[in-house]
Simulated scan of single mutants.
Amino acid sequence: MPEIKTAGKPLNEAKKAAILIHGRGASASSILSLSSYLKLDEFALLAPQAEGNTWYPHSFMAPDQQNRIALESSIATLETVWKQIQDAGIKPEQVYFIGFSQGACLSLEFAARNAQKFGGVIAFTGGLIGETFQPEKYSGDFGGSSVFIGSSDRDFHVPATRIKESASLMEKMGAKVKTLLFDDPEHTIRQEEIDWVNKNILM
């Protein structure tokens, strides 16, 4: 069983849940600290911990074989968290995915592989995973789910081209996508991103 840190409302008392997914080298505890900035007071918060603090060993755009085993294990971890939330009776449209960097990539990847009406997908610096862009991997209909992707327009790890490709694919799958690309080189979460998400997705 994966290690899952929890915060916020108890799962059996909450009507909404958020799965928070940390970045490379970070931890479940560190991503939970985002709840101080996001409007998550009414949520059950679940943050899985990656083994060795990384969800997959190489770049999210490395040759697929290099990340395959670790990536599938990480997707399975998210499936475990998803099942816990579903078993608690929380509807998919009340479930939110929130990730940064590796966690943002994983959030988008899991959501696109299992597209349905979610509460929202919030990706702070991320794109769909793979050496090349592979639309055939994804299926389902987001049914108007809100998807947010914010990043630098020249992030060292996540090219803006992959962010735009990911946004376009998810729009074709029925998501309402908002991208905010900032004119700075920082690999971080900006206050403008927090403000947009609080106003438009977590209101």
Rank of each mutant, 00 (worst) to 15 (best):
M1C: 11
T6Q: 06
T6K: 06
A7L: 09
P10E: 05
L11W: 00
A14L: 01
A17E: 00
A17H: 00
A18S: 03
I19E: 01
L20I: 03
S27V: 03
S27Y: 02
A28V: 01
S29W: 07
S30R: 10
L32T: 01
S33A: 12
L34G: 12
S36L: 13
Y37F: 15
L38F: 13
L38K: 01
L38D: 02
K39I: 10
D41I: 04
E42T: 09
F43A: 00
A44C: 07
A44H: 00
A50T: 03
E51I: 13
E51K: 14
G52H: 11
G52I: 10
T54P: 10
T54W: 13
W55Q: 03
Y56T: 07
H58L: 15
F60D: 07
F60R: 05
A62F: 08
A62L: 08
P63M: 06
P63Y: 09
P63L: 08
Q65S: 14
I69W: 13
A70R: 12
L71D: 08
E72L: 13
E72N: 14
I75E: 08
A76W: 04
L78G: 06
E79D: 14
T80I: 11
W82R: 10
Q84S: 00
I85Q: 00
I85Y: 00
Q86F: 01
A88S: 06
A88H: 00
I90P: 00
I90W: 00
K91Q: 13
K91F: 06
E93W: 03
Q94N: 15
V95G: 07
I98D: 02
G99K: 02
F100H: 10
F100E: 05
F100Y: 12
S101Y: 04
G103I: 03
A104Q: 04
L108M: 08
E109K: 03
E109T: 06
F110H: 08
F110R: 08
F110Q: 07
A112E: 05
A115F: 11
A115N: 09
K117Y: 07
G119A: 01
V121F: 04
I122H: 01
I122M: 07
A123E: 01
G127D: 12
L128D: 12
L128P: 08
I129A: 01
I129Q: 01
F133Y: 10
Q134Y: 14
Q134A: 14
K137L: 15
Y138G: 10
Y138R: 10
D141G: 12
F142W: 04
G143I: 05
G143P: 02
S146L: 15
V147L: 07
S152T: 04
D153F: 09
H157G: 12
V158D: 05
V158E: 09
P159F: 05
P159H: 03
A160C: 05
A160S: 15
T161E: 15
T161M: 14
R162Y: 12
I163Q: 05
K164Y: 12
K164S: 15
E165A: 14
L169I: 09
M170K: 03
M170F: 10
G174P: 06
A175E: 05
V177R: 00
K178A: 12
T179K: 08
L180T: 09
L181I: 03
E186D: 15
T188P: 09
I189K: 02
Q191P: 15
E192Y: 05
I194F: 09
V197N: 03
N198E: 11
N200A: 08
M203S: 15
